[in-house]
């Protein structure tokens, strides 16, 4: 059994007393070394969850426990060391004048010795495939490259959780692919919990578990396969369903008895082939 790393206990949040609740009584757990995707319509509370996880916001009700500590004013500095975050806009998160300065920034803030910084810059830029760009100025990079550097900067301080808050939303398909490849390698190599907040179905399918948010509440929590089986209900709350799930439905309606809920085209073709060769 894996250990709990993050726990939300009946968490509610709103920006001010006059405003409606953004999160309502949310409870869930995230385990060590787990990949979880959080999906939901715009305004469903996804990003608020992320901001609560590293103390950019604090809940009015309930409590958040990370690595055994409750998130509050006193613990946020420890917690931020454990919880790294990459945001949507690649242009808003650069501070250094070169790629390596940028990766060094977080470590400088935490007083890492120079030798350790040099080692970690090398190690983490290699992990995201950006080692050759060590001396490049950030504005010369593509969006996908910028986000990879942002990931390296966060990894450099060895977080135990990496949160990607729509980190691929502003990238082109190539950039998205780069990021997803990077992230999945990194998760493997660093054994960290990965939380991807996204609308991209490809990203959701790769996760082990999906948390679906609707109007500030947890609507469902299950594997991608279980989630995408609920096509109609997902559409009702403004979410998308992968092409494979739609096609599977249509195939069933056309009289083909597919029993599994295929997650990708290979699985679907495999099912069709089994049916085909059985007779």
């Amino acid at each position: 059994m894996r250990n709990k790393f993050i726990e939300f206990r009946n968490v509610s949040f709103r920006y001010s007393d006059e405003e409606p609740w953004v999160l309502k009584n949310c409870s869930f757990e995230i385990y060590e070394n787990e990949w979880i995707a959080i999906i939901g319509h715009n305004g469903s509370g996804k990003s608020t969850i992320a901001k609560l996880m590293n103390g950019l916001l604090f809940p009015q009700e309930g409590e958040i426990i990370i690595n055994g500590q409750q998130v509050n004013e006193e613990t946020i500095w420890d917690i931020r060391r454990d919880v790294g975050m990459v945001f949507q806009n690649p242009d808003n998160q650069f501070v250094g004048t070169t790629v390596q300065d940028d990766v060094a920034f977080g470590m400088e803030n935490r007083g890492f010795p120079r030798a350790e910084m040099v080692k970690r810059i090398e190690q983490n830029l290699t992990a995201v495939g950006m080692q050759e760009y060590r001396l490049t100025e950030p504005h010369r990079l593509s969006g996908g490259q910028k986000q990879r550097v942002a990931i390296a900067s966060v990894l450099a301080i060895s977080p135990k959780v990496l949160i990607l808050d729509e980190a691929t939303a502003m990238l082109d398909p190539k950039g998205r692919m780069e990021i997803m490849r990077t992230v999945s390698n990194v998760q493997e190599e660093y054994k960290l919990s990965l939380i991807t907040i996204t609308h991209d179905l490809q990203e959701v399918v790769q996760a082990e578990r999906v948390l679906v948010m609707n109007k500030g509440e947890i609507w469902d929590e299950a594997t991608p396969r279980e989630i995408f089986a609920k096509k109609e209900a997902l559409r009702e709350i403004g979410l998308d369903v992968p092409f494979v799930a739609i096609l599977t439905d249509e195939l069933k309606q056309a009289g083909i008895s597919i029993t599994n809920e295929p997650l990708n085209q290979e699985e679907l073709l495999e099912d069709l082939w089994t049916l085909h060769s059985r007779t």
Partner: peptide
């Protein structure tokens, strides 16, 4: 697709 799958219903 249905037309090509044998035993498809």
């Amino acid at each position: 697709v249905q037309r090509y799958i044998k035993g498809a219903g």
